[in-house]
C-alpha cells in the first residue's frame, strides 16, 4: 500500500492503494466516478476510456502508480468542457445510445477527437473510434452525433 496523489477532474486527490491497481478501479471504487466502465479489462473495447493529459486512454490496465503526475479527466467532468458538452448534446439529439454501457467511453473518445481535429470527415471519425466497441448497434447514430457536434462547434 502506498499513498499516491492524483489529479482527477482538476482536483488533487490522495489515495492509499496498491500502486499496481489499474486506474479504472481507483476511479470507480475510491473516487466514486463510475462513468468509466469495465467492459473487458483487456484494452480491447474502450468502455473504460478517460482522458490522460488530454488523450483518450483505456485505463482498465494502467497501473495508477504510473500516472500520478498526469492530468486525468473523466466523463463526469466533460459537461464543463465546451467540446465535451457539445458532444453530449449531440448524442442526445441523435439518440446515440441504447443500453449506454459503451457510451461514456465513446463520449470521451469523441471529445478527444474533436479537440484534436475540429472538422473530422467521416473517415477520421471512424479512425478515432476504431478501438471502441458497441454491442447494441448504436454505431450509425454515434457517427452522426459526432458529425453534429463538429458542426455545432464550427457554427459557434
Amino acid at each position: 500500500m502506498e499513498t499516491l496523489s492524483l489529479t482527477v477532474n482538476g482536483v488533487r486527490q490522495e489515495i492509499t492503494c496498491d500502486p499496481s491497481t489499474p486506474l479504472l478501479y481507483i476511479l470507480r471504487n475510491d473516487l466514486g466516478l463510475t462513468g468509466a466502465k469495465l467492459g473487458c479489462g483487456l484494452e480491447q473495447c474502450g468502455a473504460c476510456a478517460v482522458m490522460i493529459d488530454g488523450e483518450a486512454t483505456f485505463c482498465c490496465n494502467r497501473p495508477v502508480g504510473e500516472i500520478t503526475e498526469k492530468d486525468i479527466v473523466t466523463v463526469e467532468a466533460l459537461s464543463n468542457d465546451p467540446v465535451g458538452a457539445a458532444v453530449q448534446r449531440a448524442f442526445l439529439a441523435e439518440g446515440a445510445a441504447q443500453c449506454g454501457y459503451c457510451t461514456t467511453g465513446i463520449v470521451v473518445a469523441a471529445t478527444s477527437l474533436l479537440k484534436e481535429n475540429p472538422a473530422p470527415d467521416r473517415n477520421a471519425i471512424v479512425v478515432g473510434l476504431e478501438d471502441h466497441l458497441c454491442r447494441c448497434g448504436s454505431h450509425a447514430r454515434v457517427i452522426a452525433a459526432i458529425e453534429r457536434a463538429a458542426q455545432e462547434l464550427a457554427n459557434g
Partner: peptide
Amino acid sequence: KIAPLGLSEMVTGEYRFLHD
C-alpha cells in the same frame, strides 16, 4: 421523437448500472 429516459445520464456518466 422523444429523448429516451436515462440518455442524458448515460452521456454524463451519471446513469447507474448494476455494476456501479
